[in-house]
Design a protein around this nucleic acid. Structure first.
Lengths: 222, 222
DNA sequence: ACCTGAACACCGTTCAAGT
DNA sequence: ACCTGAACACCGTTCAAGT
């Protein structure tokens, strides 16, 4: 019989999320189709609809699953952890999530799952900012600034890194092909800085952003 | 005859970009299909392939087209414009681009077009940062930090705003439905701040980010 | 030189039928 | 209660044929 995902393993939401996560990260977002996932699970493509309303619900479930590992990395943050270290640990955990699950991160960084893991992460970050005594309006603005900036930066990086191979190639080489070749005459600044620009890594930028955000929050304390 | 896009208007790359841009922004990314675009232009879906290699090349052409209006808004920046005002004008122009062409912005903010408009914008921003005398390494890092942060923030916003209607609805209401309803007992910080969090706008965040980036660049001058 | 249209190999999703 | 499989309404792209 070819019905189940394995001997004695009944199809369930958890099994589907497990396999879908592995499939997406292994073969890219394009491979995350119902027919492909059904093959992976040994069931018909449409069996899926007994467990999820639609594909988007699965994608959000994948996101919440990857947020669980973020949550694990934040467990040792206590009320005694300084807010700077706490924010750095949160940023680190987001960066790691993006590196480990770039396909799902690219698919969902602009979304809200509303799931259990996401809720807990939100609570932890708000608890970090709350004691700064900035007042409600400033606290929520800085929360959004911090979260949105880092989610967006990491998400943009994952989007670029997980483009279909042919397209990714073209994009990555845009700087070395076109920008490095621009003439000094009309593009003096680009001509001068293109070589160095190619060398800047996403991680450097992300870390500079964390520094910049922490500096900005400090400036708001006065 | 139904061959041409209009009386005397032959099919050309420019005509295709015009119509595709209008179609995408009017009806969303899902409407930007070859068959739909062909109908719009009054030609067969596959006539397109006489003018572009593939759909991705069209998408990048749409991006470069929307960057032209950014360029127009930066024309009055001169060597005499202070770097702070210049960066603010650049940020404003990017924000406007995102508001006017959210669908194309969402599709391409993580990409490099390598096109003529993009090249000129890059040159203008590098010319703004170059005179600060930060040295090559710091100049390129701050260039990437400034550009990537603002592109990513605006792009994430456009992605959220241009989701298919059913999905967008679910996402937008996640905060008001789930977060505002979390109990004080387990989620005291979220319970307290959820109402205010719902009210923070993308534009406030974007402007706070511009402030934060300029402050950070200032701190690097010392 | 450029466009057509059939065709290929895919999508997400619905629904009646099976067990 | 859950899964199957045909079917529907789509995709992007290729290629031989038309003009």
């Amino acid at each position: 019989m070819t019905r189940a995902a394995g001997p004695g393993v009944a199809l369930s939401a958890t099994t589907i999320v497990d396999r879908a996560l592995e499939l997406a990260e292994r073969e890219g977002a394009a491979a995350l189709s119902m027919r492909r996932l059904g093959r992976e699970l040994g069931v018909d493509a449409t069996a899926f609809y007994r467990h999820f309303r639609d594909k988007d619900e699965l994608v959000l479930a994948l996101a919440d699953r990857t947020i669980e590992s973020v949550l694990d990395r934040l467990r040792d943050i206590t009320p005694d952890t300084g807010w700077r270290s706490a924010l750095r640990r949160i940023a680190d955990a987001m960066w790691q999530q993006a590196q480990e699950h770039p396909v799902v991160f690219a698919l969902t960084f602009a979304r809200s799952t509303g799931g259990p893991a996401e809720r807990q992460v939100v609570e932890i970050i708000l608890r970090t900012l709350q004691p700064l005594g900035l007042g409600a309006a400033k606290t929520v603005l800085l929360y959004r600034l911090f979260m949105d900036t880092l989610l967006a930066l990491a998400g943009m990086g994952c989007t670029a890194r997980t483009l279909p191979p042919e397209i990714a190639e073209k994009d990555v080489t845009a700087w070395s092909r076109v920008y490095a070749a621009l003439p000094h005459k009309d593009f003096p600044a680009t001509h001068k800085h293109a070589p160095a620009l190619i060398g800047v890594t996403d991680h450097e930028i992300f870390m500079a952003s964390v520094d910049s955000l922490i500096t900005y929050i400090e400036s708001q304390l006065a």
